[in-house]
């Protein structure tokens, strides 16, 4: 049941150069959103740029009806968005997607994210911890300059493992290697991932090798964002190559069991 709101920007924060955190008043959306949901933002009321931009929900303050999202300026859409000022309205449709990081059956959660893929994992870690789960979070960044949200994730995790590819901050190497070690120690019973494709593929492989189930949040280019245009197709793993069967990132996903889809 997505809704379209003009949400007032109540707080704007630059986390680093070209990465912004927006807090908007969007009670209608917050009331019905769950970890894994995303929103679509129309950055201009003109027809250029044309399409809405998909952005994950980072954090929700349910009591005050505040929705927070974080985005990196990539191209013209996010650039225009970044110029909004406190008091301006943001045209948002949400919640979208299945909102289904589903951890109810598990106790020892590994939450793993890389780069700008870490944003949708915060609300997940927060809610899982509130529900009494054991949350270990693994965050990977390219180097020290890219590290984001360390304290925030620390507060919602029982343990935070932070790694950089070049070792310039935190542990040295890919975050997934540390997850692997913990799985071998028997500390983990399920994995929740969002981040760059190579990382997600590594998670998929790790899940296959260890038998630990993994849920991944995927990205794809979108038209409508709500299951109408069939633009954001991803092939199901079980369907044959010559007659592929598709599901949709915006509707069936963005969170999928890693064995369900091909990516």
């Amino acid at each position: 049941m997505p809704v379209n709101v003009k949400a007032k920007l109540v707080k704007k924060e630059a986390l680093k150069k070209d990465v912004f955190k927006f807090s908007v008043k969007a009670k209608e959306i917050v009331d019905i959103s769950k970890p894994g949901h995303f929103i679509e933002i129309r950055v201009s009321d003109q027809v250029e740029p044309f399409l809405r931009r998909p952005i994950s929900i980072y954090n929700m303050d349910k009591e005050n009806g505040i929705l927070e999202f974080i985005f990196q300026v990539k191209g013209k859409g996010t650039d225009i968005l970044s110029q909004k000022q406190v008091g301006d309205e943001v045209d948002i449709i949400g919640p979208l997607g299945n909102g289904k990081f589903d951890y109810s059956k598990y106790q020892n959660l590994a939450i793993i994210g890389g780069g700008i893929g870490v944003f949708p994992l915060y609300e997940l870690a927060k809610e899982a911890k509130e529900d009494g789960k054991n949350v270990t979070t693994y965050l990977g960044f390219r180097n020290k300059d890219f590290v984001l949200l360390e304290d925030e994730f620390k507060n919602v995790s029982d343990e935070l493992v932070l790694a950089t590819d070049d070792g310039s901050y935190g542990k040295n190497g890919f975050a997934i290697n540390f997850l692997k070690e913990d799985i071998e120690k028997g500390k983990i019973d399920s994995i929740y991932a969002c981040g760059p494709l190579p990382m997600l593929r590594a998670v998929k492989k790790l899940a296959e090798e260890t038998g630990i189930p993994a849920q991944v949040s995927l990205e794809e280019k979108m038209g409508c964002g709500m299951g109408v245009c069939l633009g954001c197709a991803v092939k199901t793993a079980s369907s044959p190559k010559d007659s592929p069967s598709y599901v949709y990132v915006c509707k069936t996903g963005p969170v999928f069991d890693s064995t369900f889809v091909e990516f």
Partner: peptide
């Protein structure tokens, strides 16, 4: 009827391209 591989849509100046494949 099945459709095309993704990406199936992309934005262009004041519009978009699609190749859904009539799925």
């Amino acid at each position: 009827k099945t459709g095309n591989k993704a990406p199936r849509v992309c934005e262009t100046s004041s519009g978009m391209l699609n190749a859904i494949g009539l799925e």
